[in-house]
Amino acid sequence: MVEGPPIFVPYALQAAYAEHLARQLGERHVGPNIVSQYGYKGLGLYARYVLGAPRLDIAFARGIRALPYLQSGASVNLHDAGDCIILQFGSGIHSIVGAGHIDEGTSILLIDLVRHFLGKEWNPEWVELSGKRFTGDEMLEDLLGAPVRYGKPLLGIAILKDQLQTHNPRPEKAPRTVLFKDLRKMINHGPPRTMVGLVREALLQSVMEGNPCEDAVTAWLGLGKRTLQRQLAVEGNTFRKVFADFRIERAKAMLAETNQSARSIAASLGYHEVNSFRRAFSRSVGCTPAEYSALCRAQPPDVSVVRVFRTSQAVS
């Protein structure tokens, strides 16, 4: 399990495993010691979606929105603490022995997430944990890079409000952008039941590889072009139409969720000229990519969470 690809294990099982290790090794802080070895990027596609956000506050919003894909029963809260916002996390297993290891390990993940935007030298103002302080817990504060406040109901890390609008210094390039709907790959789902569904899966794969075209799709499916067209015709469709619909849908999602330019989006979706993309988008959607992007900025998809940040800033 450790050597294979990332998988998501229920927190109760993680807690039991960490508690067993802690007792065998005589090490109270197993969680952060393990998690610090792989960091936030170890969460795979989920991490790519969150770390691809244009700003830190949007990254928090993405993480909250997609959390059900990661673990059931977990929760995230935002608490106003004057000059700071406390990002709180609840695993939902506080009554289980070993839950403290999960909280301590998750604090490392949250800090690593923020450091992607604010730099490796950033440390939280403080960290909140449940439970009591024990002799030797200074080592935990060294791992976290911040003082720890114990006896709190939830794990939390404190971030200055004026840091929330920090832009992403390392945004993903358009072909590698992970969108919200891409996260369905993180949960068990059956294969597509139609040829159109298979083609759309192949198109997504080809976009991620930077080569969206019919040749890439037929190679991925192991079919000849004529066979592909015949099977699509049985469903009353053509590759040209499926490809056109796929490109417009993905362009709309990228304009809504990212800061990618029309030129970058066009290139990632296989358009040879940006003007060809603009014309196709306008015919299908009824407005230009720039107009659609402006509309999405006025009412971003993560508005419910972003509003919390903005309200907190206004109150302070």
Score class of each variant (00 low, 15 high):
residue 87 L to Y: 10
residue 87 L to W: 12
residue 88 Q to E: 15
residue 89 F to V: 08
residue 92 G to E: 05
residue 92 G to Y: 00
residue 94 H to Y: 07
residue 94 H to R: 11
residue 95 S to F: 05
residue 97 V to H: 01
residue 98 G to P: 07
residue 98 G to E: 02
residue 98 G to M: 00
residue 99 A to K: 04
residue 100 G to R: 03
residue 100 G to A: 00
residue 101 H to E: 06
residue 101 H to Y: 08
residue 101 H to C: 02
residue 102 I to A: 00
residue 103 D to R: 03
residue 103 D to K: 02
residue 103 D to S: 09
residue 103 D to P: 05
residue 104 E to N: 04
residue 104 E to K: 13
residue 105 G to V: 01
residue 105 G to W: 05
residue 106 T to S: 08
residue 106 T to N: 09
residue 106 T to M: 11
residue 108 I to T: 09
residue 108 I to P: 01
residue 109 L to G: 01
residue 109 L to Y: 07
residue 110 L to C: 00
residue 110 L to W: 04
residue 110 L to I: 04
residue 112 D to Q: 02
residue 115 R to H: 07
residue 115 R to L: 05
residue 116 H to A: 10
residue 116 H to W: 11
residue 117 F to R: 09
residue 117 F to E: 08
residue 118 L to I: 07
residue 119 G to T: 14
residue 120 K to Q: 13
residue 122 W to G: 03
residue 122 W to K: 07
residue 123 N to R: 15
residue 123 N to M: 14
residue 124 P to F: 02
residue 125 E to T: 08
residue 125 E to A: 09
residue 125 E to L: 07
residue 126 W to S: 11
residue 126 W to R: 15
residue 128 E to A: 04
residue 128 E to N: 06
residue 129 L to M: 12
residue 130 S to P: 11
residue 130 S to R: 08
residue 131 G to M: 01
residue 131 G to S: 02
residue 131 G to A: 00
residue 132 K to A: 13
residue 132 K to L: 11
residue 132 K to T: 14
residue 132 K to V: 10
residue 132 K to G: 03
residue 135 T to G: 13
residue 135 T to Y: 12
residue 136 G to I: 11
residue 136 G to W: 13
residue 137 D to S: 07
residue 139 M to W: 12
residue 140 L to D: 08
residue 142 D to R: 13
residue 143 L to E: 05
residue 143 L to C: 00
residue 143 L to A: 06
residue 143 L to R: 11
residue 144 L to T: 07
residue 145 G to S: 12
residue 145 G to L: 10
residue 145 G to V: 11
residue 146 A to T: 00
residue 146 A to K: 01
residue 151 G to F: 11
residue 151 G to C: 13
residue 151 G to N: 14
residue 151 G to R: 14
residue 152 K to M: 15
residue 153 P to R: 02
residue 153 P to E: 07
residue 154 L to W: 10
residue 154 L to P: 06
residue 155 L to G: 04
residue 158 A to I: 09
residue 158 A to D: 08
residue 158 A to L: 09
residue 158 A to Y: 13
residue 159 I to E: 06
residue 160 L to D: 12
residue 160 L to Y: 10
residue 161 K to V: 00
residue 161 K to D: 03
residue 161 K to R: 12
residue 162 D to Y: 14
residue 162 D to M: 06
residue 163 Q to L: 15
residue 164 L to W: 08
residue 165 Q to Y: 03
residue 165 Q to S: 09
residue 166 T to D: 05
residue 166 T to F: 01
residue 166 T to Y: 01
residue 167 H to T: 15
residue 167 H to M: 12
residue 172 E to C: 15
residue 173 K to M: 15
residue 173 K to H: 15
residue 174 A to P: 10
residue 178 V to G: 07
residue 178 V to H: 11
residue 179 L to S: 01
residue 179 L to F: 03
residue 180 F to S: 09
residue 180 F to K: 10
residue 180 F to Y: 15
residue 180 F to I: 05
residue 180 F to G: 08
residue 180 F to W: 13
residue 181 K to C: 00
residue 182 D to H: 10
residue 182 D to R: 06
residue 183 L to N: 04
residue 183 L to E: 05
residue 184 R to C: 11
residue 188 N to R: 12
residue 190 G to Y: 12
residue 190 G to K: 15
residue 191 P to T: 13
residue 191 P to W: 12
